[in-house]
Design a binder for these strands. Structure first.
Lengths: 334, 334
DNA sequence: CTGAAAGCGCTTACAG
DNA sequence: CTGAAAGCGCTTACAG
C-alpha cells in the first residue's frame, strides 16, 4: 500500500518514456504511437495512475467544474433539477461543485469561493445574486445563469417560469368555476416567484371586476398550508377558492380542510396550487395547478451556459418559459 | 473589464511587495505585519483577486473537496441528506463535488474521476462500490464512507439503518394487529436495504409461526405501490396486511386500495411503510412506518469521515443505526 | 516580518 | 512520434 500517489513521472520511469509522453497519452488531442500508448497505459494501470485534473487546469485554464449554488436543496423541485442538471453536465464532461446557500436566499457569500475553485460556469438556483457579484463573474468571463430567479433590466442570464401568466390562469379558472371569495397564500413572501404569481392572480381577478383576494402569508411548505387553512377556516367569512403559491402549500390546505374541518373539496372550497409536482396528480389530491415546464427550464439553462462557455461574450438572455393550467378535481368535480 | 484573472503576482506588483507576501497574507498561519496586510488586501480588492485554490492544492496536497457520489438524487431521503451534508461540510471548510450515479447503482465508474479531482474524502450514498475500488481509495489514503449501503465483512466504512430489526418490528406490529395474510412489496429488489427489510419481516413472522408472506416485486417508487396494489387486490385471496419497503410505495398502495378499490385502511387492509418521510404523518395518510434516524446517520457519516481525514489509518467502522416503529392509523384505527 | 528560489503535477510550443 | 524545457499560480523552507 504505497501511500504516495503516482505521478506522470513515476509512470514515465516505469514505462521508459518521458513525462511529456505520459501526458500526451492521457490527452486526447496528441498523436502517440500505438506501441508507446500501450506501454504507458500498462504502467499507469500498474501504478493506479490518474492525471491530476487540478494540475492540468492550471495550464489549460479550465477546470471542467460547474458551480451549482442552491437554496433549499431538499425543497420543491430542487432535487429534480439537481438530478437532471448533474447528469447532463456529467454527460458533457463537466463535474458539479455544489454550494448550499442555507437559510439565506443570497448567493453572494458563496460565489467568491466558487470562483476560487476556478469554476468554468455557474448556475444559481432559487437564490439571488447582487449586480455587483454578477459583474464580478462577468469580468472573470465566468458565465452565470440564474434559475428560477431573475434580475430585471440587468444583463444577468436567467430562466424563469411565467409566474405572472400562471397567476392569471388561476384567476380565470376560479372565476369560471364560480368562485366568489378568492384567497391567496403566499410562498416565501419576498421571493419574486411568489410575488409574480400573486400579481398575476390579482390582475386576473381585477380584469373580471373582482377586488383583491384575502391574503395569508405563508412559505413554501406543507405546514404553511396547514396553518393558513386553519386561520381561514376559523375566520369570519370563509373563502371558497384558495390559490396557494405552491402545490405543497395547497396539499397542506386540502388535508386540513378535509380532515380537520370535514369540508369537501371542491364542493365547499376549491383549491389550486402551483408547480405540478408528481404528488399533485395522486388520487388522494387530484390538485388543479399550474404546470411549470422544468425540463424546458433545465434545457434552456444548460443551453445558455453552453453558449457562453463556447463563445465568451455571447449576449445575455432572460428567458421566460410558458406555463400550463392543469385542470383537476380539486377545482371542478367531474 | 480585464479578461485576465489577477494573480498573486499582479497583487504583489500593485502593493509593492513580493508574491510570497501576498501568499502569506491569504494563508492563515503566517505572520504578516498589520500594515503590509492592509496594503495587500487593498490591492487584492482593487484587482478582484482571490487565491486559486486549485494551485494551492498542488502544494498542500489537500483540495478541501469531498466527493459525494449518489444514486437517485431526487428520490426518497437523498435530498434531505444532500441538504444537510453539504451544509455541514461547508461549515467545516469543505466543498462538495457531486457525482450522479444515474440509473446504475454502481459508483465504480465515477470514483476514478472523483479521485482525479483529488478529493480529500468520499461519501457514497445508496450506491455500491466494489472491493477493488474501495481498496484503491484506501491505497490513496482517501477516506470512503458508504451511506445506506454496506459491504459486509469488509473493511469499508459504512453507515446503515438497522433494516433487519425494522422488518421484525413490522412483523410484530402486524401480528399484534391481527393480520393473518401478510404481504411484502420489495423496493429495488437487489438492494441490500430491501433485502434486509424483507429478511427481518420473514424472520419476525416465522418466530410467530407464520409462513412466508405474499411477495410482490416493486421498486422504490409511488407507482410501484400502485401496481402492486392492483395486482394484489385482483388476485385470489387478498392480503390483509401489506408491508411496503418504503413509505412512497406504501402511499401508492393506500391511494390505490382506497380510491380505486373503495377499501378502507386499516379496516379492510392495513398498510405499513418504511422510512418515516414527512408525508407519512399527513392526515391524508397517517402511515404506520419504521423511522430511520437520518440525522444520526448523517452525524455518524460525517464523524467517521472527519476521523479518517484527521487521522489517516483510523480503523474502519461499520455502524448500524437503530430504528423505531411508528404507530399510526394505517395499521390500527384509534 | 519579508524576499528569492525551488517545486507541486501537469501541458505545450520548440526541436529533432 | 518523442524529449527537454518553460511555465501555470501557488506554498514553504531558507536566509536575512
Amino acid at each position: 500500500m504505497s501511500s504516495n500517489r503516482a505521478t506522470a513521472h513515476d509512470v514515465a520511469r516505469l514505462a521508459g518514456v518521458s513525462q511529456s509522453t505520459v501526458s500526451r497519452t492521457f490527452s486526447n488531442n496528441s498523436r502517440i504511437s500505438q506501441a508507446t500508448r500501450e506501454r504507458v497505459m500498462k504502467a499507469a494501470e500498474q501504478l493506479g495512475y490518474h492525471p491530476n485534473i487540478l494540475a492540468r487546469s492550471l495550464l489549460t485554464h479550465e477546470s471542467r467544474l460547474i458551480g451549482i449554488v442552491m437554496a433549499g436543496i431538499d425543497t420543491a423541485f430542487a432535487p429534480y433539477v439537481l438530478e437532471n442538471v448533474t447528469l447532463r453536465l456529467q454527460a458533457a464532461g463537466y463535474r458539479s461543485i455544489l454550494f448550499n446557500v442555507g437559510r439565506a436566499q443570497d448567493a453572494d457569500d458563496l460565489l467568491p469561493s466558487a470562483l476560487a475553485y476556478q469554476v468554468d460556469g455557474l448556475i444559481v438556483a432559487s437564490a439571488l445574486v447582487s449586480e455587483a457579484m454578477a459583474a464580478r463573474c462577468a469580468s472573470l468571463e465566468t458565465p452565470l445563469v440564474l434559475f428560477n430567479r431573475s434580475v430585471p433590466d440587468s444583463s444577468v442570464n436567467s430562466v424563469t417560469a411565467d409566474n405572472v401568466a400562471g397567476g392569471r390562469l388561476v384567476a380565470q379558472a376560479m372565476i369560471d368555476a364560480g368562485v366568489t371569495r378568492p384567497a391567496f397564500i403566499t410562498g416565501r413572501e419576498r421571493s419574486s416567484t411568489s410575488q409574480d404569481r400573486e400579481r398575476g392572480f390579482i390582475k386576473g381577478l381585477a380584469d373580471a371586476g373582482f377586488g383583491e383576494p384575502v391574503r395569508i402569508i405563508g412559505d413554501y411548505a406543507y405546514e404553511a398550508g396547514v396553518r393558513a387553512a386553519r386561520s381561514m377556516m376559523t375566520a369570519g367569512k370563509r373563502p371558497d377558492g384558495i390559490f396557494a403559491a405552491s402545490d405543497l402549500i395547497a396539499m397542506g390546505v386540502m388535508d386540513t380542510v378535509r380532515y380537520e374541518f370535514g369540508l369537501r373539496v371542491p364542493q365547499d372550497v376549491c383549491v389550486v396550487g402551483f408547480d405540478d409536482i408528481p404528488e399533485a396528480a395522486r388520487l388522494a389530491y387530484q390538485l388543479a395547478t399550474v404546470r411549470i415546464d422544468f425540463d424546458a427550464m433545465i434545457d434552456k439553462t444548460l443551453s445558455i451556459l453552453h453558449d457562453h462557455l463556447e463563445t465568451p461574450g455571447t449576449d445575455p438572455e432572460q428567458v421566460t418559459v410558458p406555463v400550463t393550467f392543469i385542470e383537476r378535481s380539486s377545482l371542478n368535480s367531474t
